[in-house]
Nucleic acid binder design. Sequence first.
RNA 1: GGGCAGGUGGCAGAGCGGUCAAUUGCACGUGGCUGUAGACCACGCGCCUUUAUGGCUACGGGGGUUCGAAUCCCUCCCUGCCCA
Length: 405
Amino acid sequence: MKKSITFTIEKKVSALARVGKIHTPHGIIETPAFIAVGTKASVRSLTIEMLRDAGVKAIMANTYHLYMQPGDLKVKVQGGLHKMMNWPGPTMTDSGGFQVFSLGAGYGTNISKILKNAPIVPLIKEKDEEEIKPKLVEIDYDGATFKSSMDGSIHYITPERSIEMQHNIGADIIFAFDECTSPTESKSYQREALERTHRWAKRSLEYHKSKQVKGSPAEKQALFGIVQGGRYEDLRKESAKAIGNMDFDGFGIGGSFDKEDLHTAVRWVNEILPEDKPRHLLGIGEPEDLFLGVENGCDTFDCVAPTRLGRHGTVYTREGKIHIGNVLYREDLRPLDLGCECYACKNHSRAYIGHLYKSREMLGPMLCSVHNLYFIVNLVSAMRKALLADNFQEFKFDFLKKYKK
RNA sequence: GGGCAGGUGGCAGAGCGGUCAAUUGCACGUGGCUGUAGACCACGCGCCUUUAUGGCUACGGGGGUUCGAAUCCCUCCCUGCCCA
């Protein structure tokens, strides 16, 4: 029986950290690796040439968004995700599980999946309760009902539907349909949601297997199960056991975290998940978090931060993030990040890019996105090199010493 | 010279007797963004301070009416258009 992907571990560096390779039908992902997010089959504002230049090896698109537009069948008609966007490399699709959160509990709030400091929710409650926007998601036993933010139409997504759509889209690695919960939910809700996610995982897997008949396109697609459990050790461990025992090709670690406990949450999970399968830490991508993810056994990462921050004018430098529009850089003729080899840094100054950003020239966000992707992709591949050279801790220490901000 | 329309915060442009330190947009300033609802959002943007249901100075200049004026009257200055 042909395997969709194979994962080989080149080197085990510590109890959890490892260097490996994920072989996909569209090429190899050397891990640890950062995967660029291209939600609607586009890494916003960047051409595939720019992505290649930035060192991007794989892209993750989104099932929900491609289903809404142009429609998963339309993607299929165009030859699938790779053909459609002319990206020959490895791809993934998220199942739409994140949208259960971002369009549901997270919609209209400024709650992100990462909880920072203490929750201040109860304090601001008294304000105008009626101002809270109606959610666009309704969750039930079998799936989630989405109300389109584009035209108000209603769409019901079940695990089976999500996988079916992901088969149509045709990415190399697809994810089980899960419920990403808000970090502000109570433990009892997290437990309830976890049961749902596990049930949906099983159904995602069963549906996927049922479609992997010999010679079918689905046969070449790998399915990753997603571990949830929020910030709770017992739930995370329980989830890792449940999902880890199912016959997935790899695993995603999803859900909400407490900024302070992200690494422990990841460790709880990775100590339980089968060692011989790849682990993807969903939606994590700030430098500090990537170090924690890598040393605690995650192989791949994806995050919108590089492109979203870039589009909004925030740029990574080795000394920390800077906002390129700030007066401080108005006459700064240095590159975004000193010594950076990316296209933006080799060709343009902070002053110029700041001017582009402020004058709303689209080149500004493009250059910042290119730079940020280059920065993060290369940061993770530098971690890989450091793991191979047995100096990961020194590398991390040196980086974070300068990066502090 | 005559007639008409105007002069409001960096700009545009509301307000036309009190609730106006003055709507709104732009510009400007700062902050936020972690499986992309968002090339976006939030806050600030006269000065001062014990940051406050606070004080002060302000709507071309000057004078007046009124308890109270960006808002009404007089006058001066300036701008645009039209007629001589």
